[in-house]
Design a protein around this nucleic acid. Structure first.
Length: 441
RNA sequence: GACCCUAUCGUCCAGCGGUUAGGACACCGCCCUUUCACGGCGGAUACACGGGUUCGAAUCCCGUUAGGGUCGCCA
């Protein structure tokens, strides 16, 4: 009855992958996986000027990063290749001759135009429903050029020809193409081919409602790759822009999304991109990571910051400690320095804590208590500190704050007792003594 | 300008003729707490406007307004 689904993503290699394009690819991919169909990648590189190997690589990298594997296309091959438009000249020529012989084309100053049928054309869209277009008035729908005087091809023509040749059954693309669709429909009819089903997804806007362009924050997939985002989180967030499982769930496993995805359920309203929410979802994925996964993900940032952590074995307990504080991977190194060097600076806030009257005396008392502590564990460290606080008639905070400042140079950080445990007795006692020397005057 | 799409908290997403209009991000307050976070509890904030249809409209229809898209020898 209905053919197996074949969908495609057909980007132009411009040197970067826009999140809007990525979402289009994602929705196509989801539909293919949902239906058990094929997802095809086709590179629309008819504009030779910007077609470079690097630009194509950006597309591959972005798609791979998001986990959007293609069943046919560059690198993987397929029965309908080549998958670069620049290599399909003969195909286009064949279709061109067909249209020309049938009398649909005419020469206009060297360029070739396709003569539209002057009638009403209705697009039956999977997402937008039936949308009427009127081609009866020539002035507002001039015949479209499909070939330039230099022999090169225009997008509308090659796009349709390739979709025919590649057996595309469903075209899911950006809403900016909705108004182009009746033109494409006319081409299909002239060629005597049954058109695919179309589904036009709304565009992604900036948070303030303006158009999202290259320069805008978060517009490029590469920015997420470089920013240490979890690919699954970005993918998840993109899914939620215009689509939902309808039951208020937000963090969803991919197979669950594949199972539930339905193009007709895609929202018709343009969505505004909220990086804050994307960050929150990304954090949800970070929290869900095991220590090993987290370490692998954070390592590039730790190394880039030049943190001399020694071995992975030395790093693990520290990351286990600070993991809960980290909202974004790139900030990881900020939590680490004092674990791996004695040359850490004192923040103004921390210094102030040590200059408070009596701070150094309580610190000294704590140091003495800790020096003789039989067991160096977080629990024992906590018990001792509280015992001393009680003995001195002060709140625990009176001891905690100077201690934290003395051993880390910071006023904020992870749980003090666990931090002391990881630091070890030797370093803790030395740093407490050092703080006394540095701040007593 | 013409044509097309869209319109629920600031944002994303529910809601499809009868709901105290729900959830999430962000925001505010309280609690927890050694800090910052986390977490828990609570709060403020929305059906763009005007007409219909209906016993009854966020939900259906028509206008207006606003936003977006398309009108290329770009893709």
């Amino acid at each position: 009855m209905s053919l197996p689904v074949r969908v495609r993503f057909a980007p132009s290699p411009t040197g970067y992958l826009h999140v809007g394009g990525a979402r289009t690819a994602l929705f196509n991919w989801l539909y293919a996986r949902h239906t058990g169909g094929k997802f095809i990648l086709r590179v629309e590189d008819t504009d030779k000027a910007r077609n470079t190997a690097e630009a194509v690589q950006v597309i591959y990298d972005g798609m791979r990063w998001l986990g959007l594997d293609w069943d046919e296309g560059p690198l993987v091959g397929g029965d309908c290749g080549p998958y670069f438009q620049s290599e399909r000249e003969a195909v286009y020529q064949r279709y061109f001759d067909k249209l020309k012989d049938a009398g649909f084309l005419y020469d206009d100053g060297g360029a070739w135009r396709f003569r539209f049928a002057r009638e009403l054309v209705e697009v039956d869209d999977m997402i937008c429903g039936k949308v009427p277009f009127d081609f009866r008035v020539l002035e507002i729908t001039p015949d479209m050029t499909i070939r330039r005087p230099d022999g090169s091809w225009i997008f509308h023509f090659v796009n349709v020809v390739d979709d025919i040749e590649m057996g595309i059954t469903h075209v899911i693309r950006g809403e900016d193409h909705l108004s182009n669709t009746p033109k494409h429909l006319q081409l299909y009819r002239a060629l005597g081919v049954e058109p695919p089903r179309f589904g036009h997804i709304p565009l992604i806007l900036n948070k303030d409602g303006s158009k999202m362009s290259k320069r805008d924050q978060g517009a490029s997939v590469a920015s997420y790759m470089e920013g240490g985002y979890v690919p699954a989180a970005v993918r998840n967030y993109l899914c939620l822009l215009g689509w939902s499982p309808k039951d208020d769930r937000e963090k969803l496993e991919l197979d669950e999304i594949v199972r539930l995805f339905e193009p007709s359920k895609i929202n018709r309203k343009a969505a505004q991109f909220d990086i804050e929410k994307c960050n929150w979802l990304n954090w949800q994925y970070l929290v869900a990571m095991s220590l090993d996964e987290f370490t692998d993900a954070a390592l590039p940032f730790i190394e880039k910051a030049g943190i001399l952590y020694g071995t992975r074995a030395a790093l693990l307990p520290v990351l286990a400690l600070v993991k809960e504080k980290i909202k974004q991977l790139p900030e990881t190194p900020n939590w680490l320095p004092y674990f791996f060097t004695e040359e850490f600076p004192f923040d103004p806030d921390a210094a102030e804590k040590l200059r408070k009257p009596g701070a150094l005396e309580t610190l000294a008392a704590l140091r003495d208590g800790y020096a003789s502590l039989p067991e160096w564990t977080a629990a024992a460290l906590e018990a001792k500190l509280k015992e001393l606080a009680t003995a001195r008639g002060v709140k625990a905070g009176e001891l905690v704050h100077p201690a934290r400042a003395a051993v880390s140079g910071r006023s904020v950080g992870p749980s003090l007792y666990h931090m002391l445990e990881v630091l070890g007795r030797e370093r803790v006692l030395a740093r407490m003594a050092g703080a006394w020397e540095q701040f007593a005057q």
